[in-house]
Write a protein that binds this DNA or RNA. Structure first.
Lengths: 144, 144
DNA sequence: GGTGCCTTCTTTCCGTTGGAGAGTAGCCGC
DNA sequence: GCGGCTACTCTCCAACGGAAAGAAGGCACC
């Protein structure tokens, strides 16, 4: 287990990819993980493997289509493993991989950020909206 | 500056919001920050304020429409401040707020994750695609 | 003094994505 | 053999995203 080597390699790899550029594959990868469904699915799977129906219940807001689609993409990208058990009705379990595990902490923090800073955002929106209503049309108000 | 109080309040707030539910406002907030443009814009602004044209150059992949639209949403949500200077051609600067600053570290890590784990994802995709090509049609293969 | 250029958007067109809800497949119990 | 269960899959339509042209406001050039 070359821990230092792996870290050094990751650093070198980060230098060779640039998510700012559309033609860089890391841009596309960033777009895929920057999805609310990926964030919520990773957070839900952080506690351990779950079945399709478990995930559906854990995340009531996701449609079956998006649930399947997101899980497929995540499986292809190596974030989750899909295990089919040919039981009475077929049973499918989803579990984080090591790669998924390296991302789950980050995405859980993103979800937590959204939940814990909701009130700050509310206040900012209220302020913005009242400011926008006060200014008639002109956008050229310097507010320093 | 009630640091402890603010942290305790954030924790309480996180408990009262649940991003898993579509009707919860934090779900919508998560959807907004889970955008590649928000991630890239925060990362670009982490080093300091930038003008509209600077951002456009820093992130060549973003269209003007999405740049403006994303910045407006981020401004409304209190992540950035927009400062208009009535100069020769009008000059607009964007800068992180304290709230934006509390998110920027996280989102920079997400961007870095995408860049540093690109090769792992590539390998996973190659493996997935070859497996998919090998399996004729049946999805019911238990691979464990 | 009109043409052109600069920045920062705004609008339009249209292809892609996402959500709601119904349909499908395989199997078992009744 | 009919309904019910799980895990999808399909269809329809609305919303989002990208490309490119337009717009406002002002100076500079000739």
């Amino acid at each position: 287990m070359p821990t230092l080597t792996a870290a050094a390699r990751r650093e070198r790899e980060r230098d060779s990819y640039n998510a700012y550029l559309a033609e860089c594959p890391s841009h596309n990868l960033l777009a895929q993980i920057s999805s609310k469904w990926v964030t919520l699915l990773l957070a839900a799977l952080s506690a351990g493997p779950l079945r399709y129906s478990d995930l559906s219940r854990a995340i009531p807001s996701v449609s079956q289509k998006m649930l399947t689609q997101s899980l497929r993409t995540m499986e292809r990208d190596g974030l989750v493993v899909r295990t089919v058990t040919a039981a009475v009705p077929v049973r499918v379990d989803y579990e984080l991989t090591a790669l998924g595990g390296s991302l789950v902490g980050l995405m859980t923090q993103v979800k937590d950020w959204a939940e814990s800073h909701m009130d700050n955002v509310y206040e900012a929106r209220r302020e913005y909206d009242s400011r926008a209503a006060a200014e008639p049309v002109a956008t050229l108000n310097k507010r320093g």
